[in-house]
Design a protein around this nucleic acid. Sequence first.
DNA 1: AAAACTCTCAACCGCAGGTGG
DNA 2: ACCACCTGCGGTTGAGAGTTT
Length: 281
Amino acid sequence: MDLSCGWNSAAAADQEEIRRGPWTVEEDAVLAGHVAAHGEGRWNEVARAAGLRRTGKSCRLRWLNYLRPDVRRGDFSPQEQLLILELHFRWGNRWSKIAQHMPGRTDNEIKNYWRTRVQKHAKQLGVDVASARFRDVMRHLWMPRLVERIHAAAAAAAATTTEHATPVDVCHSPDPSTTTSCTAGTSSSTSTSMSVPHNHHLTAMTTSVAEAAADWSGSEQCGSASGGISDDMFEGSWSELLARAYGDDGADSSLLPDMHMAAETGEGWWSFEDIWSQQQY
DNA sequence: AAAACTCTCAACCGCAGGTGG
DNA sequence: ACCACCTGCGGTTGAGAGTTT
């Protein structure tokens, strides 16, 4: 198998040349096999011992972002998107820290999501992604919108379940007090009804957020939340929104702005005018 | 059909912090 | 205390896929 792939002609003249660029299937197999046999860590040694002409850093990155068995791929669910926004509110560009609370997701993926999706739309709106204005947009429009989607998905799934009496791997219990495995930061039934795609991951996520909330003490209050500190801010956003999304009292649609989606985007974004008309909260 | 453009994401880079000799 | 090496993090880049013109 030709591993030079032609992007570094000097490599042909020097067998010890460090390879760069995309990993081949063969390299992946070698690295995965070596890690399986010897475990993670000591990446420079891994690269040498496995005979990979890669840097230790490259091996580490490839393992963490791609080869790790628990790594998840594919689009972020609305729940995950909501969690990213929430955690970014708290920690800013601390991607690795955010990733710690999103099982199976890598800091690289989250960072890419933020840059390609969030920053793109901030740019479309003509506001700085770090500005208070954009944070307000996220808190009052984007996040509720995501919750709306989560609720819609949950409702649709619930309807399907009822209609077909299909067993679904959910944490939902007729009695919320029995949903021990799904208990998030709040003791209510806010983490029930995960009968939407990735439900088991949401369970993990809500638990992670609860843990994060426990960690989160004394840090600065951010955004334009209700004026409480730490836990209050947390309660007023993630937990409350999820409660509204999943609560058995039905979602309170008054929470959600009456947004008219920007027709040109067709994917749930709203116009500049819509946003500013909703700024009177 | 094809050129131009946009978007996504894997991978690289530089830097900082930790550790051991 | 200093140095060398390793690891982890956040920012950036570029190839390729997808979309538009």
